[in-house]
Amino acid sequence: MNYPANTIVITLSRPFKLNGEEVTELTLREPRVVDKLTYEKTAGGPLVKESTMIATLCGLNASDIHNLPAYDYEQLTDAVNRFLLPPEERESQSS
């Protein structure tokens, strides 16, 4: 398997305006070690660090996801946590 090879598509609970366009889903890529290193170097508390990393994993700026509904943000954090499982366990946890 070639890492990072996976992405997860998160269907949002309702359309979200992003850069003037309505989006209904976000694609989150598998985190790499460099993402965790950047997380450590990011200024701010745990939620600031986490939201910045998640935005990066979605190819967005941190401010882009600040107005997401909390439910949709939780879907993104759950997806990140699934990526931290061994690959064979991820399949059984897919949504």
Rank of each mutant, 00 (worst) to 15 (best):
S13P: 03
L57D: 07
T38I: 13
N61W: 00
Y3C: 08
T24F: 02
N81K: 14
Y3A: 10
N2M: 09
V33L: 15
K49Y: 07
P46A: 11
L47M: 10
A43S: 08
I8Q: 09
V23Y: 02
D64A: 08
M1N: 13
E88Q: 14
T24H: 09
D64N: 06
T38Y: 11
M53L: 15
T24V: 11
Q75L: 12
G59L: 07
T52V: 09
L37G: 06
G44V: 02
P4S: 11
I8R: 09
L26P: 05
C58E: 00
T24N: 13
A55Y: 09
I54A: 01
V33T: 15
T27N: 07
G59R: 06
I65N: 04
V80G: 06
K17N: 07
T38S: 15
M1H: 12
E88V: 09
P4E: 12
E25H: 04
T42L: 05
T27F: 07
T77E: 10
S63K: 03
E89K: 12
D72C: 05
L68G: 03
P4Y: 04
L60C: 07
G45W: 03
T11Y: 13
L76H: 00
V33Q: 11
G44A: 05
I65D: 00
E22D: 14
T24E: 12
A5R: 11
P15N: 04
P46V: 11
N6I: 11
Q93T: 08
V34G: 08
T42Y: 03
S92F: 06
T24P: 04
K17A: 02
S92R: 14
R14M: 14
D35Y: 10
A79N: 02
S92P: 00
G20I: 04
Y3N: 13
T42R: 11
F16C: 01
P4L: 10
C58V: 04
Y73H: 04
T24G: 08
E25S: 15
K41Y: 00
D35W: 04
Y3V: 12
L57F: 08
E40N: 10
L28Q: 14
Y71T: 14
I10H: 05
E40L: 10
L28A: 10
P87D: 02
D35M: 08
L85F: 10
D35G: 08
V33F: 15
I54R: 01
D72I: 01
I8G: 01
E89A: 13
T11I: 11
R82I: 15
R82M: 14
L68S: 01
E89H: 03
I10M: 07
V33H: 14
S13C: 02
E30T: 01
T52C: 03
N2C: 05
K36E: 14
D72L: 05
E22K: 04
A43I: 01
S95L: 11
R14N: 13
Y39V: 06
Y71H: 13
